[in-house]
């Protein structure tokens, strides 16, 4: 336990260091550091509607990061969350557009399942290539992400384009309110319930089932796991499928929740930010939840800052990148120590 605590402490220090670096850069550039940070704090926490905005942005990050966590634990660098998220959202949209007369609960249920299944397929493909042929999953999941973006672009500009739209943006029509689980705020009891139950299930799966322990062993030392009779390929594939399903779920929640329609290139970095969230969260479910709230708060602040002042929101993107850099350095260092 002390190990976990000290790791968490190091993470907090790293994040604080990132704040320091960003403050330094902004100070040098002539901005008022206190103003930026107080503005950020307002945007993330204290302003009216800020907490719910923070949660709204944390939800997709959290769901995708849970999948990334499973992948990391199993020893794979599945960074294809972005594409899995997109195809999930597209599938959910397809269900709600295809069954316009269906009862709300059924359509949402079916759409969510379709989203999870399609996300899983999107992740299964690189997963299969990895365990069967040893193809580097970093490349394949990234490439699948690009394909997912193009699928979204094609669908929103083609078959699913809103015929009544302005033509300025490639976007689908809005789904009826009956098929939505939140208002535009993105937060409702239903959504919180969905996310909470999912998190609890994933925590139990990872920490309190033999499958979770197999994932842990296989991820740490696949050779040893094979000698112990663990089917490392199956465990690996399962991790890819689960990660895809979670990202797909995030897509469905986004569509049936705050988004209500798909716009090409929406939330363009959520899948990649989720990788950072998983790392900052130290690959534990509660840790990932905390990290997702933190980055959700940042996202919320990014949107809020221009309202209060002429401060550049990119300052916070910079913060985001610095945190990612510091955390990644530590992951690498740890891996090398473990290998030695």
């Amino acid at each position: 336990m002390t190990g976990r605590l000290s790791q968490a402490a190091v993470t907090v220090i790293l994040v604080a260091a990132a704040f320091g670096v960003v403050a330094l850069i902004m100070g040098i550039s002539g901005y008022s550091v206190t103003e930026v940070f107080s503005g950020s704090l307002q945007g993330a926490v204290t302003a009216k509607g800020a907490p719910s905005s923070t949660v709204r942005w944390a939800i997709p990050l959290f769901l995708i990061a849970l999948g990334v966590t499973i992948g990391f634990r199993a020893g794979f660098f599945n960074i294809g969350g972005q594409g899995q998220f997109y195809v999930g959202a597209c599938s959910a949209l397809a269900v709600s557009l295809g069954w316009r007369t269906g009862p709300g609960v059924l359509v949402i249920l079916l759409g969510t399942l379709a989203a999870m299944a399609s996300g899983a397929v999107w992740s299964f493909i690189p997963g299969y290539l990895r365990v069967r042929f040893g193809t580097d999953e970093v490349l394949t999941t990234l490439m699948m992400s690009f394909i997912g973006m193009l699928v979204l672009q094609y669908l929103t500009a083609g078959p699913m384009r809103n015929p009544a739209g302005s033509g300025q943006t490639a976007a689908s029509e809005r789904i009826p309110d009956a098929y939505r689980i939140t208002g535009s705020s993105g937060v409702s009891l239903t959504v919180l319930l969905i996310v909470g139950v999912t998190a609890a299930l994933i925590w139990i799966l990872l920490e309190r089932t033999r499958f979770g322990l197999r994932v842990d062993l296989a991820g740490r030392n696949a050779t040893m796991a094979r000698w112990q009779g663990i089917n490392v390929r199956r465990v690996g594939l399962a991790s890819f499928v689960l990660a895809g399903a979670l990202a797909g779920l995030a897509g469905a929640v986004e569509l049936y929740g705050p988004a209500a329609r798909l716009v090409t290139g929406f939330s363009p970095t959520v899948g990649f930010n989720a990788v950072v969230v998983a790392l900052v969260g130290l690959l534990s479910v509660p840790g990932v939840a905390a990290a997702a709230l933190f980055f959700g708060g940042l996202q919320s602040a990014v949107l809020f800052l221009p309202i209060v002042s002429d401060l550049p929101p990119s300052a916070l993107v910079l913060l985001h990148g610095t945190v990612a850099l510091l955390v990644t350095i530590r992951v690498r260092a740890k891996r090398r120590v473990a290998a030695a």
Partner: peptide, 26 residues
């Protein structure tokens, strides 16, 4: 196994997880 450090145990995993490995299958 031949090589206890790579095939016999997972060095970064906890003692109890290493010890319990056989209980995880079947």
């Amino acid at each position: 196994p031949f090589d206890r450090n790579t095939e016999g145990v997972s060095r970064s995993a906890s003692l109890w997880l290493n010890q319990s490995a056989l209980r995880l299958i079947g």
